[in-house]
Write a protein that binds this DNA or RNA. Structure first.
Lengths: 160, 160
DNA sequence: ATCAGAGTGTAGCCACGGCTACATTCTGTG
DNA sequence: CACAGAATGTAGCCGTGGCTACACTCTGAT
């Protein structure tokens, strides 16, 4: 699961393999793909953060205003609005001028998965002895790079 | 931690939009800074990957050529060269036209720390039951978000 | 009912990290 | 020695994700 967000911008390994002309690349597909994956994961990370935050704001405040989103994320309102436009383009959110932001079914579903994953990561970190402060902090960055397999392993470990 | 590379763009924390009016919570500097940290960590990630790879190539092949770096990272040679220029700007590497890339003392030192951290993260993942394949894969993305405190906790956990 | 000020939106700039296309420099065979 | 072909380097384009500056809409006090 996770990464249900198909990478949009990222053409990366879409088609035309970097191969110039000769059908090359006989070796090392492994490392390159590892880096590639890690790299592309970062792209969806921003959207995931927004979706999760919007979901939180909607349930706690009843509405998600661009300014609140911006403040919570520590960016300017202009940046937040620009990203919200992207969420709309991606079909994750809806927003009408001066009416606040809402999540589509897809956005809601993504938010749920992100939240679950976030909690699992924090719990895992706490379980191995990471101080709460650091756990919360690092989970924010780590969660976007945790694959399904790893997430499953975390779950098993915590239930041990 | 690590990241001797100072972030350039990041000004953030500049303006302070006057408090709202509705029953706003006192302050939420925590979440914003958490996101900010996670966000800025991503910036140094690329440089860290390059430095580590260059270090590997130098010891295994005796030289680090842009083309090899590009292939291993799965990007075009042009992209690799552009990033290598950035490494030079940051004082992490040196390179003369057609002579390969080398690390400065700072680059070497960073490479060492990155390598150590990478191993620790992989070991921790394996220790909690993540399959090797996923551990290697995810560590590539996770390592850049692991703070010193978390790293230390990982070490303690593994030695327990 | 007005109107200042908060909130929202738009435009334009910047650096990063991708890419392709083209130009230049090496280098190893023939 | 020459020269094809690989490796390098440069230029220019794109989208993301930041920011500031400015314009427009709401809205709640007065």
């Amino acid at each position: 699961m996770v990464t249900p967000v198909r990478m949009m911008g990222m053409r990366a390994e879409s088609e035309r393999p970097p191969a110039g002309l000769a059908g090359e690349m006989p070796a090392e597909p492994t490392q390159a793909s590892r880096f590639g994956k890690a790299r592309s994961a970062q792209s969806g990370a921003l959207l995931e953060d927004y979706v999760e935050l919007i979901s939180d704001l909607l349930s706690s405040q009843g509405e998600a205003r661009p300014t609140d989103i911006a403040r919570r994320l520590g960016v300017s309102h202009a940046t937040a609005i620009k990203t919200i436009s992207r969420l709309k383009r991606e079909g994750l959110a809806e927003a009408r001028p001066y009416r606040g932001v809402f999540l589509t079914a897809a956005g809601e579903s993504l938010a749920g998965r992100v939240r679950t994953r976030h909690r699992l990561v924090v719990d895992l970190l706490l379980a191995v002895g990471v101080p709460r402060e650091a756990a919360e902090q690092d989970a924010e960055g780590i969660e976007h790079h945790v694959s399904d397999a790893t997430l499953a392993a975390f779950g098993r470990f915590l239930r041990r």
